[in-house]
Simulated assay, not measured.
Amino acid sequence: MGALQNCEISMNTKSNRFNYSAVTLLTACTIVAGMTLACHPAASPVVPSHYTTAPSVYGVKDIKLTSKDTGIATIRLDDFILKANFQFETHPDSYGVVGSDFTAVNIINLYDIEISDLKGNKYRDFTNYEDHLNINNLIATYVENNKLTEV
């Protein structure tokens, strides 16, 4: 039995050699790669030259209600004047506090936009979706604040 025990012992005592040089090399490569990425300046996004980076400036010059649910707005957009017809709906609303009742206005259609510069030169409509959202909010706020409609 002594020989059998020696045989089992020799089979279970496999030497597992740990490869220190491979681990060291892998660790060094990881550190160098991390430092290279950390020290490399981030690539700045390229902005095409035809896009403006400054936000647009909007302002109401005049708003006239032509019926109980339509009107004409004259809006200043940067260095341009926009004349736009709009359709709206109203409904009573409040801020949840007694005495805070007001008439809420929702612009449901903005159409027939005429654009000219400050000198009166005409331009074709160049407004986009964001401009329309901002113009709608501007008109609704103006009508609500000046109480041009009552439900």
Rank of each mutant, 00 (worst) to 15 (best):
M1T: 12
G2C: 03
N6H: 05
N6P: 00
C7F: 09
C7H: 06
E8R: 10
M11E: 11
N12P: 00
N12A: 08
T13E: 13
K14W: 00
S15T: 14
R17Q: 15
Y20A: 14
Y20P: 01
A22V: 14
T24W: 05
T24S: 15
T24I: 13
L25Y: 03
T27A: 15
T27N: 06
C29Q: 06
T30I: 11
T30D: 01
T30K: 01
V32A: 15
A33H: 03
M35A: 13
T36F: 07
P41E: 07
A42H: 07
A43P: 03
P45K: 13
V46W: 08
V47Q: 11
P48D: 08
S49N: 04
S49C: 00
H50V: 06
Y51D: 05
Y51T: 09
T53F: 02
T53Q: 14
A54Q: 14
V57K: 10
V57T: 09
Y58V: 04
Y58D: 04
Y58H: 06
Y58P: 04
G59T: 00
G59P: 00
V60M: 09
V60G: 03
K61M: 09
D62C: 01
I63T: 01
I63C: 01
I63D: 01
K64C: 02
K64S: 12
K64G: 02
S67E: 08
T70R: 15
T70N: 15
G71N: 04
G71S: 05
G71E: 04
I72N: 10
A73G: 13
A73Y: 04
T74P: 02
I75M: 05
I75W: 04
I75L: 05
R76Y: 06
D79H: 15
D79P: 03
F80P: 05
I81G: 06
I81Y: 12
L82S: 10
L82A: 15
A84N: 05
A84R: 02
A84Q: 07
A84V: 13
F86H: 02
F86N: 02
Q87P: 02
E89I: 14
T90F: 04
P92C: 08
P92T: 08
D93W: 12
V97E: 12
G99F: 05
F102M: 10
F102W: 07
F102R: 12
T103I: 10
V105F: 09
N106A: 15
I107C: 11
N109W: 06
L110S: 03
L110A: 02
Y111M: 00
Y111V: 02
I113K: 07
E114N: 12
E114Q: 15
L118T: 10
K119L: 06
K119S: 12
G120I: 08
K122T: 14
Y123M: 11
Y123Q: 11
Y123R: 10
Y123D: 07
R124C: 02
D125T: 08
D125G: 08
T127W: 06
N128T: 07
Y129V: 11
E130C: 03
D131Y: 02
L133I: 11
N134S: 10
N136F: 04
L138R: 04
A140G: 12
T141A: 13
N145F: 03
N146T: 09
K147R: 15
L148F: 07
E150N: 15
E150S: 15
E150L: 11
E150M: 09
V151C: 12
V151N: 13
